[in-house]
Design a protein around this nucleic acid. Structure first.
Lengths: 210, 210
DNA sequence: GTTTAAATTAAACGTTTGTTTAACTTTGTG
DNA sequence: CACAAAGTTAAACAAACGTTTAATTTAAAC
């Protein structure tokens, strides 16, 4: 657990946004320094290198992802389908709340050569799956959920749909429904729309009901 | 419609793979020249610049996507659900068959600053949506599909799921089912698995049946 | 065979890249 | 105040970048 000063956080935040918008190699340390209003040398001084800066972003964000997972493990009083719905809502909230980081993840998971970062991503995905699977399995054994469910594919659709929505948000805005919303309203509209959609998908597949 | 010589095609193919694996800015023209076994200058000579090389890749691949769409518009004898299933199969075949290009699309659609390429991507997505929507609408009016369906979100899940499967293919390989398959067998296994999953999703949402 | 255009090459071009240096300022401590 | 550590700076570094040049080879046409 590392503590960051205001200046360090500024660098992290700016770098995260630029990496998301232009890619890691498409962003120069000079870009970052300029937008964060710090001297170029400070980046190496604080983080060691551009690569380690990216690593720091991952460590920083993944820490909160772990907390997120642990929080979810505690809600044990709900019905299986309620659990699923709550999980979906929280995933959407989390991922749309850190869109820049999710963009970086989308990009980095495509890199073919294996790296510590790529390993971290798939490890995290595995943990998310580990969160969903027991809920489903338990409900299946209790006869509440149907048996032949490809939980892995269901999670793939969950992540994939949200990851598609993030870059599509500029475009979906042109919908007549969403045309006149301000940014906050639109964000809520999006969350609601993708949430409704995903809950419908999961409910249908898991319970064969609507 | 441009015709490419063997050498030009070699450059295009190599560049496509490298852009997919390492990103556009993560790949140097020297990398491309070396792997394609041509002189560096030939890239500028044939394509004008690195940027235009990427554009050429897009034009090349998108041409086949347009053909793909037109082919699909002809199958008019099938039942609505058959059409949907056929569409899903063809999407999967197409996208997994050009994984490198799909990776590039995944990356490029994340770029925040608008570019001709980004516009092309969303235009193509719009056309894919335009392919699905009338099938659904017609079947809805015929009382075969249910009314309240978010076709746009359904397509988002379709693309998102496949785009997630592409980088996940290295990982999914570790499944006990897929462990001992060779590359071709594994590709078929993947296609079948994601296809079954997506057809189930669509059928459930559209017909409320299983 | 000569001429003209296209293809190909190694070398060099000017930028931009990530990183480091060395000097300087600020801050905290005794 | 004095001293040491941390923070900050402009400048410089070599390396890599995309692109161009000018010279040479190959191919095609007459």
């Amino acid at each position: 657990m590392e503590e960051y000063s205001e200046k360090q956080l500024s660098i992290l935040t700016v770098a995260e946004r630029l990496f998301a918008d232009q890619g890691f190699h498409g962003t120069s340390v000079r870009d970052i320094a300029q937008e964060a209003d710090v001297n170029i040398a400070m980046i190496s001084y604080y983080f060691g290198s551009k690569d380690k800066l990216l690593e720091s972003i991952f460590k920083y964000r993944m820490e909160t992802s772990r907390k997120f997972i642990n929080e979810l493990l505690e809600n044990d009083t709900m019905e299986p389908l309620q659990k699923i719905n709550s999980l979906i809502d929280r995933f959407i909230n989390k991922m749309l709340g850190e869109q820049y980081f999710q963009c970086i993840m989308s990009r980095e998971q495509l890199n073919s050569q294996q790296s510590p970062i790529r390993d971290l991503i798939w490890q995290l995905k595995g943990e998310m799956l580990g969160l969903m699977r027991p809920i489903v399995t338990n409900a299946q054994e209790a006869g509440i959920f149907y048996k032949d469910v490809d939980v892995e594919m269901l999670m793939t659709s969950l992540f994939g749909t949200i990851h598609q929505v993030i870059p599509a948000k500029h475009i979906l805005r042109t919908n007549p429904e969403a045309k006149d919303l301000n940014d906050d309203e639109y964000r809520e509209y999006l969350k609601n729309r993708v949430g409704t959609h995903l809950k419908k998908l999961f409910k249908a597949i898991l319970t064969h009901e609507f």
